[in-house]
């Protein structure tokens, strides 16, 4: 049943969000700490485990794959509802700070990826 997969996905998200919220309260932060990331971990664990086979195999799995495939359309809709006007009305300071932060962060990707590589030399995929 397709809905089993969708229900599993929903359960993972809700559980992850709850934990993220609890983590936020525990750390004294006004934000959800990693709720989505935790939910993703749950889904990875469930899809790699035998116990949940009935919820991720066959038709149930297509219920999850559908939402995974809807990801890009949803991201396009997300882009269309960003406050782009406010971003550009913030003035030069905001533009410079935002652009500089992105450039420096981009530059760090290969540097930190290397840290990972030296830890696990067997990696180098495709």
């Amino acid at each position: 049943m397709i809905v089993y997969g969708v229900a599993l996905l929903s359960a993972c998200l809700i559980l992850g969000m709850l934990l993220g919220e609890v983590l936020g309260v525990a750390l004294g932060v006004e934000a959800n700490v990693g709720g989505v990331g935790i939910a993703m971990l749950f889904l990875v664990l469930a899809s790699n485990s035998d116990k949940f086979k009935a919820l991720v195999d066959g038709a149930s799995g297509t219920g999850i794959q559908f939402w995974s495939a809807m990801y890009i359309p949803i991201v396009v809709a997300m882009a269309a509802r960003q406050n782009v006007v406010a971003a550009f009305e913030g003035g030069m300071l905001a533009v410079v700070a935002g652009v500089a932060a992105v450039i420096v962060s981009f530059a760090l990707v290969p540097v930190i990826s290397k840290i990972g590589n030296s830890e696990t030399p067997s990696e180098e995929s495709q």
């Binding site: 998200l13 939910a39 990875v44 899809s47 790699n48 995974s68």
Partner: peptide, 14 residues
């Protein structure tokens, strides 16, 4: 957005 993001984790290897 979050629902779809989590769904993309389907099939990811631990």
């Amino acid at each position: 957005r979050d629902f779809a993001i989590v769904a993309t984790a389907f099939g990811v290897k631990l």
